[in-house]
Design a protein around this nucleic acid. Structure first.
Ligand code: SF4
Ligand code: SF4
Lengths: 133, 133
DNA sequence: ATATCACGGACTCTTGATATCCTTAATAAA
DNA sequence: TTTATTAAGGATATCAAGAGTCCGTGATAT
């Protein structure tokens, strides 16, 4: 069990977009070169992020992506959720009434999610930015 | 990203073994029938659990499995670790010095692990047993 | 009109999980 | 000693999801 590479790419992309000046657009070309991967593939990931409302896209010449106007505080969980989906890590097909095993697994997952939800990308972005100076 | 079915099977098997009287052996046949899966496949899982020291096996006629003598307090994390391995959920191949992203992801995973480590199988087993009455 | 861009369908390739088959070795009972 | 029973493990087949590419469509600025 492992997080997909797409999640990693998505996180890096979001951090990069967040560090851009307001309303400026970044194309998939630039984002792909930065991470040394193909634009076509990254495009799929960006579409997922857009569908989740984390970023906004503008088609056509001089188009590109920028972070969503309505979502200022984006957490790690938001990004992971957009890429990995919202299915539970432990997914028993039977679902016995009040199953104790599921209860434990779900609680554990909740603990992880709660941590991921409390960490905002903006904080990581600022930290990365200050280190580069 | 999802836990493998093998982890589910392993948890059920462990709960069943823990509810057995001391030193009594249970064969893979019985364990497989209980969960409606093939004995050969479950055998692989049991071998992993044995390698991790959670159960002990006795070959030959009248042989079978029992929970380890030396491991009385087995947690959910022990079982999951035995099946899924010990690799980190978020595994970036680059590992930049003091990476903030990894730090967040690892901390979140730790929170999940800590919960899984605090829950013992024996408690779940007792709960399941009392419900059947 | 044309160049530039995002979007999405279809496709291939790789990897890991799932599952089976068959052989070997150990043990108890006959 | 022989036989039945049982775990262990290698080899193999199957399947699903992830990773990645190719190409056509539509929107937009110049
Ligand atoms: S006991 Fe819980 S985990 Fe096990 S089969 Fe029932 S619902 Fe699934
Ligand atoms: S910044 Fe962190 S997650 Fe990103 S490539 Fe470097 S080590 Fe990996």
């Amino acid at each position: 069990m492992k997080y997909s590479n797409a999640t990693n790419y998505a996180l890096h992309t979001m951090v990069h977009l967040i560090l851009q000046p307001r309303e400026s657009l970044v194309g998939v070309q630039e984002l792909a070169e930065m991470q040394h991967l193909s634009p076509t593939y990254l495009s799929k990931i960006l579409t997922k992020l857009a569908k989740a409302g984390l970023i906004e896209s503008t088609p056509g010449a001089k188009g590109g992506y920028k972070v969503s106007r309505t979502k200022h505080e984006i957490s790690f969980l938001d990004v992971i959720h957009a890429i990995e989906g919202d299915t539970s890590l432990f997914d028993c097909s039977i679902h016995h009434e009040g199953c104790a095993i599921e209860k434990v697994m779900w609680q554990a997952e909740e603990n992880m999610k709660s941590e991921l939800n409390s960490k905002l990308l903006i904080d990581i972005a600022k930290e990365a930015e200050s280190k580069q100076k």
